[in-house]
Each structure stands twice: as C-alpha cells, then as structure tokens.
Amino acid sequence: MTPPETVLPEPTWHDLRDAHVARARRWTDPHQERRQRKEKHPVLDFLFTYYSHRPAHLERWHPGPGVVLEGASAEEYLRWSAYRSTPDGVTLGPLSPGRVATASFILDLLSATASRPPRLGCFGLHEWAMVYRTPDIRHAAWPLRLGPSGTDEVVESSTIKCSHFDAFRFFTPPARPLNTLEPSREGQVALEQPGCLHANMDLFKWAYKLDPHTPSSLVMDCFELAVDVRTLDMRASPYDLSALGYEPVRIETERGRAEYVRAQSAFAERAGVLRARLIGLCGGLLSAVGGGGASGDGTSG
C-alpha cells in the first residue's frame, strides 16, 4: 500500500529550504573562505575532499520521497530528472533503474552493520598506522605529538584491529601486517561494524549517494555526525593540532583510551539512529520500484 503524500504549501517549504541552507552554510562558508585563502584544515577539509559531495550540493534542499511541493516556484525542481509534475505540485518520482543497484548495496551494507554489536577499543590507531615508519605523512604541516620514533613505538606496542577497508587501505606497507584483520572491498558487507568511526562517518556518504531521494534533513544529520566523529578521529591521531583548538585524546595512555571508548560508544548510539533511518529510506525506495538484493556498488568517496 502506497503511503499518503505530504503536501507542503509554498511558504512552508520555502521556510524549510531556507533553514536548511543556513544550516549547511555554517560549514560550507568557512570551507570556501579557507579555499580562497589557500588554507588547509587537517580536520574539516576531509568532509569536502575525501567525500565527493560538493558544498553547493550540500546546500541544496530536497524534501525526500512522498512530499509534494506546491506553488509556481516548485517548478524549479523539474530541472532534476528525479522530479515530476503532478496536479498537486512537484514531487520525486521513483528511483531510476540505474540507481536501484546503489540503493540495494547501501541497504545490504547498513543492515548487516546494524545486525552486529559495536566493537569498541580500536583507539583510532588507523591514523597512527598511516604514518608508521614513513617520512611521507598526509598532514606534513602539523607535527607528530610524540615524534616519529614515539609514534612508531605506540603502533608496535598496540593491537591494531581496524575493520574498515577505506581506513586500512591508507596504512603504510610496514603497518599492514600488524592489523589483526584483513579488510577488503569485497568483504565490506561481511566486516563493517557499528562501533567503527569510519563506518559511522560514512553514513554521510550513503545519504548523499541517494541524493535527491534522501531528505536533506537526513543528509545534514549524517554530515554533522561525520564532523563530530572526524573531530574525535583527529584528536586521537598522532598529530598535534592544539594550535587549532583541538586538545589531544592521548590514546597512548590508559586515561586517553578510556576517553576514546566513551566517545566512540556515544557515536555508535547516535549513528544507530541515523543508520536505521537510512535503512528505512532504502527499503521504501526499493519497494516503490520492486527492487532489492545485493549489488557491487561499494565505491568510496
């Protein structure tokens, strides 16, 4: 049975659109200003460089499925092929055949992830493994808190158990054999788990992969989670970012590890709510076209 549509009068959806733009620009405006100054930010740039959703796209408001936009100005949405005109206004149509595989993969991945208990206690060592025994570090403008040798000692004295392929693939060659797991793209659905910081940041990716069918409020909720998770990720990293106001989580100490696990647990709970919303969205989109099943679209970025 098809759920009833929500009809939004023109002033109502204009207000929702404007509020979304203001929410997004809290992040996109500073990013654009830094770009103009040619200034790199080791924490926040990640949200706009590793992930492929452009700032201008983040600022666009889409209501999501089952919503009809009233008024003449709603016709501007018809420039996107996903929208269609109805007697009541403009609304999203079903997923195109080419996007069913993407929605199927996302549904399979997120459902599998949600079915597992969160595994905590990785302590963000993936960032340490990315600089292990190499002079070629990603954020070369920022010093290592413990220096190269001290950083290497932390890696060598720790148990590294990274389960996320898109973190593991950036390990240095000497660090790869130290990981207790062997993440791969092919094994992504079988291995991802809800305590992983990268899996929880990636909810933003899975949300925008279905744009414009993902409600923009959900995209922004996932984006803001990714900002907060990325902040912990870099505070727990080997880099000294205190000059930017990021106090370190010293995972090389017992107190720092306890702090990390508390934050990781809170993020897992917060991400679980968003993951469930995305699972529901994918299920609804696929039901509308009679689609489902696994696919191979596990691309990153």
Rank of each mutant, 00 (worst) to 15 (best):
residue 70 E to S: 09
residue 185 R to T: 04
residue 24 A to S: 07
residue 182 E to L: 15
residue 231 T to Q: 10
residue 25 R to T: 10
residue 97 P to V: 06
residue 16 L to K: 05
residue 158 S to M: 07
residue 110 L to H: 02
residue 99 R to N: 13
residue 297 D to C: 09
residue 176 R to F: 00
residue 263 A to V: 15
residue 135 P to E: 09
residue 250 R to S: 12
residue 182 E to A: 13
residue 28 T to A: 07
residue 70 E to P: 09
residue 23 R to L: 13
residue 66 G to N: 13
residue 156 E to P: 07
residue 239 Y to C: 11
residue 94 P to F: 01
residue 175 A to F: 05
residue 251 I to P: 00
residue 92 L to Q: 05
residue 70 E to C: 06
residue 262 R to N: 08
residue 282 C to M: 12
residue 76 E to S: 15
residue 298 G to S: 04
residue 77 Y to H: 12
residue 197 L to Q: 12
residue 61 W to C: 03
residue 89 G to Q: 05
residue 155 V to G: 00
residue 158 S to F: 10
residue 65 P to G: 06
residue 49 T to G: 01
residue 19 A to V: 10
residue 216 S to K: 05
residue 269 E to P: 08
residue 93 G to C: 06
residue 151 T to Q: 04
residue 198 H to K: 11
residue 35 R to E: 14
residue 190 A to N: 12
residue 107 L to F: 03
residue 299 T to R: 14
residue 288 A to D: 14
residue 68 V to F: 06
residue 156 E to F: 09
residue 298 G to F: 00
residue 188 Q to M: 15
residue 101 A to M: 02
residue 257 R to F: 14
residue 42 P to C: 11
residue 147 G to K: 02
residue 190 A to T: 13
residue 127 E to S: 01
residue 15 D to W: 04
residue 215 P to G: 02
residue 168 F to E: 06
residue 216 S to C: 04
residue 190 A to G: 14
residue 173 P to N: 07
residue 295 S to A: 14
residue 132 Y to D: 04
residue 71 G to A: 03
residue 235 R to G: 01
residue 104 S to Y: 04
residue 257 R to N: 04
residue 170 F to R: 11
residue 191 L to W: 06
residue 261 V to Y: 03
residue 177 P to D: 07
residue 130 M to Y: 02
residue 21 V to F: 03
residue 9 P to I: 05
residue 249 V to N: 00
residue 1 M to Q: 07
residue 67 V to H: 08
residue 73 S to V: 13
residue 81 S to T: 11
residue 166 D to C: 10
residue 1 M to Y: 13
residue 274 L to Q: 07
residue 168 F to N: 04
residue 137 I to G: 02
residue 72 A to V: 05
residue 289 V to G: 08
residue 287 S to D: 15
residue 199 A to W: 04
residue 293 G to N: 09
residue 92 L to W: 11
residue 69 L to E: 00
residue 255 R to T: 14
residue 65 P to A: 03
residue 61 W to D: 04
residue 174 P to D: 06
residue 62 H to F: 15
residue 27 W to M: 08
residue 101 A to V: 08
residue 186 E to M: 08
residue 270 R to G: 12
residue 280 G to R: 12
residue 199 A to D: 01
residue 40 K to C: 12
residue 194 P to F: 11
residue 58 L to N: 03
residue 285 L to G: 06
residue 212 P to L: 07
residue 141 A to N: 03
residue 280 G to N: 09
residue 267 F to Q: 08
residue 42 P to W: 06
residue 6 T to V: 13
residue 160 I to K: 11
residue 137 I to H: 09
residue 72 A to W: 10
residue 9 P to A: 14
residue 55 P to Q: 00
residue 55 P to G: 00
residue 267 F to T: 01
residue 140 A to V: 10
residue 135 P to Q: 09
residue 187 G to P: 08
residue 110 L to I: 04
residue 74 A to V: 01
residue 213 H to L: 02
residue 45 D to G: 03
residue 158 S to G: 10
residue 97 P to A: 09
residue 23 R to V: 02
residue 209 K to H: 11
residue 270 R to H: 09
residue 241 L to T: 11
residue 103 A to V: 02
residue 201 M to W: 01
residue 262 R to V: 15
residue 144 L to C: 00
residue 9 P to R: 11
residue 42 P to A: 12
residue 45 D to S: 05
residue 200 N to F: 04
residue 54 R to N: 11
residue 224 E to L: 08
residue 217 S to G: 15
residue 111 S to V: 13
residue 35 R to D: 10
residue 75 E to P: 04
residue 265 S to Q: 14
